[in-house]
Simulated assay, not measured.
Amino acid sequence: MRKKDDVCEVYCFDEEKVAIRKADLERQKTLPVAQIFKALADDTRIKVAYVLSKEDELCVCDVANIVGCTTATASHHLRLLKNQGLAKYRKEGKLVFYSLDDDHVRQLIELAFIHSMEVK
């Protein structure tokens, strides 16, 4: 049997540290954060979010062509990002333009891509 180096060999914890962090965690709303990461966990959606992070806005057809999918697929993913509060849209005539909802979303996506280049 192989010994696992990434698991504590004894059970003990810092009661003060645990109490502080536990109280902090209980004040947070974790479900909306989990939903953000769930929305970005799809390969096509992260591609869509990435291209939106590099432009002020793109129409659905632009996104479809950049990502390499149909306009129906792009529209589906853009709508999901919008419903999760990550993107917004505006309609101009027969065209629909999407952009990221705010700079926090842009930063989150950019940091994820930067981190992915650092991971072994």
Results as ranks from 00 to 15, higher is better:
residue 107 Q to K: 14
residue 68 G to T: 13
residue 114 I to H: 03
residue 59 C to G: 11
residue 39 A to L: 00
residue 6 D to Y: 10
residue 48 V to Q: 00
residue 98 Y to A: 15
residue 119 V to Q: 14
residue 89 Y to C: 11
residue 60 V to E: 08
residue 101 D to Y: 15
residue 103 D to I: 07
residue 32 P to R: 12
residue 86 L to H: 04
residue 21 R to L: 13
residue 37 F to E: 05
residue 69 C to Q: 05
residue 78 L to H: 11
residue 7 V to F: 06
residue 88 K to L: 10
residue 107 Q to F: 07
residue 25 L to I: 03
residue 19 A to G: 03
residue 22 K to C: 12
residue 116 S to W: 01
residue 75 S to E: 12
residue 80 L to E: 11
residue 25 L to F: 00
residue 32 P to L: 12
residue 11 Y to G: 01
residue 99 S to Y: 07
residue 57 E to H: 12
residue 53 S to C: 14
residue 116 S to P: 02
residue 105 V to D: 06
residue 94 K to P: 01
residue 89 Y to V: 02
residue 56 D to N: 09
residue 118 E to T: 11
residue 59 C to M: 04
residue 100 L to F: 07
residue 112 A to V: 09
residue 9 E to C: 01
residue 94 K to H: 07
residue 18 V to G: 00
residue 116 S to N: 07
residue 101 D to W: 14
residue 8 C to S: 01
residue 102 D to A: 13
residue 82 K to W: 03
residue 51 V to A: 05
residue 116 S to I: 09
residue 33 V to I: 12
residue 64 A to E: 12
residue 27 R to N: 09
residue 98 Y to I: 14
residue 103 D to V: 08
residue 26 E to P: 01
residue 66 I to C: 02
residue 59 C to I: 04
residue 76 H to V: 05
residue 111 L to G: 14
residue 96 V to K: 07
residue 8 C to E: 00
residue 70 T to K: 08
residue 96 V to E: 09
residue 97 F to L: 01
